[in-house]
Amino acid sequence: MILVIGAIASGKKDYVRSLGYSPEAMSDALDDSHPVLIDLEKLVDADPDNCMQLLPDLLKKEVVVCCEVGSGVIPAVRRDRESREATGRLCIALAKKAERVIRLVAGIPVVIKS
């Protein structure tokens, strides 16, 4: 599994396309028919408390794309803090198992782990 992270509009999906995946290969739903999962942070936000349960299915994907949401001022709303924390923890768990971790910076893929 390749974990692709980066800020909003940093070029994550373009990078995934450059790996040979069409937009049809990408989905934000955790089903069996798409090799690429995008917008992981939204999936986590739907149920932050139970997001670690997504891990086995995420590891079956070829590519997982997640927005980096942990930077900036810590949110005043508890639910927002928990969602951010849950996303970070899940990404740490994914990065541990991933063959590669790529971070997009202004459209440039930076290798974090390979």
């Binding site: 980096e68 942990g70 930077s71 900036g72 849950a86 996303t87 970070g88 923890r89």
Partner: peptide, 8 residues
């Protein structure tokens, strides 16, 4: 340095 829950 790093954001929240990045493993610091």
């Amino acid at each position: 340095t790093g954001g929240s829950a990045c493993g610091k």
